[in-house]
């Protein structure tokens, strides 16, 4: 397990290094002089010179890359061109808003999905199972930002049950503002998780120890709740970890639709103002989050299911 952990994190580190280098080279490969693009045509020569010095643009490219890596190691992602604030500060100030929205989405959709999946597996091929299956596929299909827009239109604009924009004040206010966004992000996960749990539950229910438990006369309800479910929800852990990239992507749109602060709003705002250091910093932090959550999901999976360790 120790060797697997080291290997998995080494792979994650390698992926991040390649990703950072690729990003960096891509930005430098864009035709035109980055300084004029960032500052616009009316920048004074002094301003340009100071930015060139600040971003080390007068150095050869490999040296720039090393300087950037040096900064990364010290937790420095550069400076916001406009406000002069550190990019790390800006990104980590916005990140909690995004994470709380994603966390709430995952919690409600996983809870409902697991319940639906377990119920369907306990009553296979009944009408409820079939309906749940069809609904699951349909929910999987709904892109988060379309759901977000329709939810905004129906529940905020027309019915006015929930606030349309912002984050709100106090615990209940904040929660109230989170309802529609996390509904939009979580909806497609309900069906996905339900299908996953149903399939893995049916597999577990066919195994020997469950048959033994049945032979002992333990109630079906207890078998499902305390024996089968514990094993059947393992894949959910992996899927949520691997789905982090997907969740972050949904969060970008949802934040725009509901005008919530967060890294999605940050990256879009920075793109429209051509604030490259902030764009790059946000993309890197979210990539890092994604790589980390995938690695943790793999490790958890290996910890909980020893068979997974040997595959890689």
């Amino acid at each position: 397990m120790f060797i697997y952990t080291v290997k998995r994190f080494a792979l994650a580190g390698l992926i991040l290094i390649v990703a950072v280098t690729a990003m960096f080279l891509m930005i430098r490969a864009v035709p035109g002089d980055p300084v004029s693009i960032m500052l616009g045509p009316r920048a004074t020569p002094e301003l340009k010179a100071s930015l060139i010095e600040q971003m080390a643009l007068d150095q050869p490219i490999w040296k720039q890359l090393l300087i950037y890596y040096g900064g990364l190691l010290r937790g420095d992602l550069g400076i916001d061109v406009f406000s002069g604030r550190s990019v790390v500060d800006i990104v980590f100030q916005q990140l909690p808003y995004t994470l709380e929205m994603i966390a709430l989405s995952v919690v409600w959709s996983a809870a409902l999905g697991i319940a639906l999946g377990a119920y369907a597996a306990a009553h296979p091929n009944t009408i409820i199972d079939r309906v749940a299956a069809a609904v699951s596929v349909s929910f999987v299909a709904a892109p988060a930002f379309v759901v977000a827009l329709l939810a905004l239109l129906i529940f905020a604009v027309q019915l006015q049950w929930f606030p349309a924009i912002g984050v709100g004040e106090g615990f209940w206010g904040r929660l109230n503002h989170l309802v529609l966004p996390s509904f939009a992000i979580g909806l497609s996960w309900v069906g996905y998780i339900a299908r996953l749990v149903r399939a893995s539950m049916l597999e577990v229910l066919g195994e020997g120890h469950i048959r033994t438990a049945r032979a002992f006369g333990i109630s079906e309800r207890r078998i499902i709740m305390s024996y089968a479910l514990r094993i059947a929800i393992l894949p959910v852990v992996t899927v949520i970890g691997v789905g982090m990239g997907f969740l972050l992507s949904s969060a970008v749109f949802t934040e725009i639709v509901f005008a919530r602060p967060g890294i999605g709003k940050l990256v879009i705002d920075s793109i429209t103002t051509r604030n490259y250091p902030v764009v790059m910093g946000t993309v890197l932090v979210s990539t890092g989050l994604f790589v980390l959550s995938t690695a943790i999901a793999d490790l958890l999976n290996a910890l909980l299911d020893p068979r997974a360790r040997s595959t890689k």
Partner: peptide
Amino acid sequence: SFPTVMFALA
């Protein structure tokens, strides 16, 4: 490893 939308936006 890039979140799709973030990559697209970049």
